[in-house]
Design a protein around this nucleic acid. Structure first.
Lengths: 232, 232, 232, 232
DNA sequence: CATGAATGAGTGTTCATTCAT
DNA sequence: TATGAATGAACACTCATTCAT
């Protein structure tokens, strides 16, 4: 047991004890609380993600999430004010997770190669067995975003950010005369995002779908947008 | 059959006909089972589609569908045996609607042109104001298909059929030496389906997304797969 | 097809026709109606008995009874004004069925023999495969009679009549000095009715229960009430 | 365990104890799971028994049971998973209640006397005003057992146990040459059970039925099975 | 802060009954 | 009368949320 964890437990026991004896209105225990809160939130969100991706947003009950997180409803509701709030938080986390991916690649000199690498990296996820859950959750959130303003806002920003990042790469390539200047960078970005979304849904509907050749076609098509220098 | 019985039947048939023409206020359907059942099912499914695409599958209650269809729960349940049954029926209808679209285009001689036309036709739907509801419903059904076996089966078949139809076009083009034989026709088909799915989701999340340039990029990319006539 | 049945059909067709043409308020067709009504009631009650004894009074719906009787709800409700009314009617029929049984036996000279014969006759029913349904219905009605005044009244009268009939036999035996005058005839009757009710319930709960020896014990016990003349 | 933790636990336990003693108005049970659950189950079962015996199994709604027990549907369903589950639980309790009665009597030396005592004890229940509810419930359960497998199993076991207990008494008497060896002990037991069932139903149908004389006849008949000391 | 029993509005569904034809 | 589509109140049951401890 880590020293910190020990402190948490001590603190809890102690605090409780104090409350029983003196009934003080507000016992402040600020030091540990912060990490504690974060850890608890993690616990809840992980459980929620597991439930939601397995059974869907509406067939997962708070009770199930409680069981999955070994927490009581009361505890859950002291960290999130509603089920919707949990969903919103998950959407936000999902976003954070994806953002970094693109930026890393922007450094590579050869743009087409960079895009190819990104495609490889993106789509190899689909072979990761744990990824299936993520995909399912994504689809679930897309549906949710149609009528949940908060989720929609988060996903819209996420999408915009991706589009912007992609577009920037394309714009660079156009500047370097590597690419046809007739296409709108944002539109190319949109198409690439579609490639990802589309495969997510297709794989969700039929897990046996072929990805390898899908990537090949995708690369071939991207190449088509580039000014063939040394390429056929 | 006695003469009297004949008259009775005539009388009943006639009455039905008259009722169809007059369009009485509360659409009191006549006793003629077959058309009546179909009409009522329509009424229910239309109401359900409206509710589902507006509020989602799980935030729409049967009561709401009843209100939207001006029917009582009892009536609804005499046409569909459960809410799931309604959802399944909608999924099946959705499928039927899409199937024909591709086949029509297969006749066109110039494959690239045919694909361009299909792209135009597909994506112009997004400008149709009523289409928004369809898209939302589609996304809803994709999420539903992740855990509803019947819906999944329907969507999987639908997807497979689309992929096959697209692939056939590609295969023809390859035969005619118009297209690179290195790509798998089914994979190309998958990519095209992704273009549609991806735009549906992006448009769902942000209705202001730009489609025109999206189509242009798409066409450009498709062209990249073809053996360039006048292209480098 | 019998002549009567033919008439019924003609009459029905005709009546319907007349109604369509003239919209007369009350078309009287008294001759056939009577038998017709009786036959229809039979049809409904038979179906109801079948349903009730198989699935119980409250797990059988009117719709099921309709299906079982090949009649429409409307038809059923034109012969019985409610489900309760059907139950009441069945209870009354049940009563009529049982009443006669005892009276037939009263003629026999040797009272103990008469009682033995009655016991044999009563309990041999339990081996009749169709009887099981009757038993189940009886138990169902006993439960129903606890809170349905009409059914209760019917069953109470039925029971009283049985008790009276039995008691009379006993009283005769007492007069002939065959039997201990210390026992109340009505009480003996009650005991005998219990023998039947008790076996009905026991057989209902466990169909494998042994009847043969049950009858033997019963006979032995009855004999115990008699002044042993030539008996052990 | 830390000293603090110990104090906390003591504090909680103590609190519980205090609450048990004070009998607060709305019976707010303390957090002590075990006793609490038992008490609440009692509360629900008592309410259910009251409803069921008054209005029958199927005319009593869960809402009514809720009202009768001053509990919400949610609370009820956290103790029993379905209405059927409540019914099953009641059937099992009923069984437990009856089992002991016979065993107590087995000690008595004089078998006939023992049986007489049991009869007295059994049937004097009918004069207990609260017994009426129990009887009604019994009849209800007999009907239910015809199509509810779980209830049937419980009642069958209950009945078998009673039969076995009675039969053992009879068998002992036969061994001691007190009783005719020609009768099957189990059959005698069945007859005795019938006496009880039969009176329950007769009393249910007509509460004015005479019990005193019924018991006399019963005793007389039982005596008939015994090897007469002073009897012919 | 943590617990988990309790809440109660709301769900999907059934079914006795009605009534236009 | 006969039909059967329609009704709608009521049902068994669920679950997001609260709150005393």
């Amino acid at each position: 047991m880590t020293k910190e964890a020990e402190k948490v437990i001590f603190n809890k026991t102690n605090a409780r004890f104090v409350l029983f004896k003196k009934k003080i209105k507000k016992v402040k225990m600020p030091k540990v609380t912060k990490e504690h809160r974060t850890a608890r939130k993690r616990q809840i969100l992980d459980a929620a993600v597991a439930c939601f991706s397995r059974k869907g947003l509406y067939k997962s009950s708070i009770q199930e999430i409680c069981k999955a997180s070994s927490l009581s409803p009361g505890a859950v509701y002291s960290y999130f004010k509603s089920k919707e709030d949990i969903i919103t938080a998950i959407a936000k986390e999902n976003r954070q997770r994806n953002i970094t991916l693109i930026d890393e690649k922007k450094e590579t000199k050869d743009t087409l190669l960079a895009l190819h690498n990104m495609a490889d990296e993106f789509f190899c996820r689909f072979n990761n067995p744990g990824w299936s859950d993520c995909m399912r959750l994504d689809i679930e959130l897309w549906a949710e975003s149609l009528r949940n303003t908060k989720v929609n806002k988060t996903l819209r920003h996420d999408m915009a950010e991706h589009r912007r990042a992609f577009a920037e790469i394309i714009r660079e390539a156009q500047k370097k005369d590597e690419m046809d200047k007739g296409v709108t960078p944002e539109a190319v970005a949109s198409v690439m995002i579609s490639m990802f979304i589309g495969m997510t849904v297709q794989k969700g509907i039929d897990p046996k779908i072929d990805i390898e050749n899908y990537i090949n076609v995708l690369k071939e098509m991207m190449a088509g947008l580039f000014n063939s220098g040394d390429r056929g």
